[in-house]
C-alpha cells in the first residue's frame, strides 16, 4: 500500500467524508458574508466620519482604525472568546466570527472609504453644498457614486482577505472550513495531504474569482481614464 501523504486511498477517505468539507464551506461562506456586511457598514460609517471636520469624531475613528489594524486578528478573536466571558459577555462562536472578522476588516474598509472620498475634488462637495445639499446628502448623491469606482477594487481585495481570515476562527473551534479541516487531518488515518489541498482549493475557488474581477475592473477603469 502506498503510504505517501497523497496516496490514492487517502483521497478516497476524503471523498467519503466530503460532507465535512461541504459543511466547512457553508459555515465559512455564512460567516464571511455576515462579517463582510458588518465590515462594510462599520467601514462606511467610520470612513465618512473620518472625513468630517469634527475633531472628536475624527479622533475616535482614528483610534478604532489604529487599534484594529495594529493588533492581530487572532488576539482579538481570542479576547472575544476567552476574556469577554469574564465580564459576563458571552457571544456564540459564530457571532464572534462575524463580529471579530467584521470589526477587524471594518477598520480596513474605513480606510478604503476615507481614501476614496478624499480622492474626489473638494469642489464637488462645495458644488453640492452651494445647491443646498446637506453634507450627508451630498456624500450619498454626489461624492460616493464617484468614489465607489475608486473604492471597488480595494474593497474586493478586502473581501478576499476577509474570507481567508475567517480561518483564524479555527483556533476557537469556529466550525468553519479551516477548523473542520484541522480536525479531520488530525484524526483517523491523519490524511493531512488531501485535507489541506482540498481546503486550499476551496479557499482559492472562493477568493480567486473575486480577485480576478477586481483586477479586470481596475484595468478597465485605467483604460477608460487614460483614453
Amino acid at each position: 500500500m502506498d503510504m505517501g501523504p497523497f496516496a490514492a486511498w487517502r483521497w478516497q477517505r476524503l471523498f467519503n467524508d466530503s460532507n465535512i468539507f461541504i459543511l466547512g464551506l457553508k459555515n465559512t461562506l455564512l460567516i464571511s458574508f455576515l462579517a463582510l456586511l458588518l465590515a462594510l457598514v462599520i467601514g462606511f460609517i467610520l470612513g465618512l466620519a473620518s472625513t468630517s471636520s469634527n475633531k472628536a469624531l475624527k479622533g475616535v475613528t482614528r483610534a478604532y482604525v489604529e487599534f484594529f489594524q495594529n493588533t492581530p486578528l487572532a488576539v482579538q478573536v481570542f479576547f472575544f472568546y476567552n476574556a469577554l466571558p469574564a465580564l459576563g459577555i458571552k457571544f456564540s462562536v459564530r457571532a464572534i466570527g462575524v463580529l471579530g472578522v467584521g470589526l477587524y476588516h471594518g477598520a480596513y474598509v474605513s480606510e478604503v472609504v476615507r481614501a476614496g472620498i478624499n480622492s474626489i475634488p473638494v469642489g464637488q462637495l462645495e458644488a453640492a453644498k452651494s445647491q443646498g445639499f446637506q453634507t450627508l446628502q451630498a456624500l450619498v448623491v454626489v461624492i460616493i457614486p464617484q468614489a465607489i469606482k475608486i473604492m471597488l477594487p480595494p474593497l474586493t481585495n478586502q473581501a478576499v482577505n476577509l474570507i481567508k481570515n475567517t480561518s483564524v476562527l479555527s483556533t476557537i473551534a469556529g466550525g468553519e472550513l479551516m477548523y473542520l479541516t484541522n480536525k479531520w487531518v488530525s484524526s483517523g488515518t491523519l490524511n493531512y495531504g488531501p485535507g489541506f489541498v482540498v481546503a486550499g482549493v476551496i479557499y482559492f475557488l472562493l477568493c480567486f474569482p473575486l480577485a480576478y474581477l477586481a483586477r479586470k475592473y481596475e484595468e478597465n477603469l485605467k483604460a477608460k481614464t487614460t483614453r
Binding site: Q124, K129, S130
Partner: peptide, 27 residues
C-alpha cells in the same frame, strides 16, 4: 442657501458621474 442662492465656480464643479441633464435636475 437652498432657498435663495446658487453658485458658479471657477472650476465648474459639474458632477462627472451624471449627464448634463442629471447635473441640472438633481437639485
Amino acid at each position: 442657501v437652498r432657498k435663495h442662492c446658487a453658485m458658479v465656480f471657477q472650476q465648474f464643479n459639474l458632477y462627472p458621474h451624471l449627464s448634463v441633464m442629471g447635473n441640472i435636475t438633481i437639485a
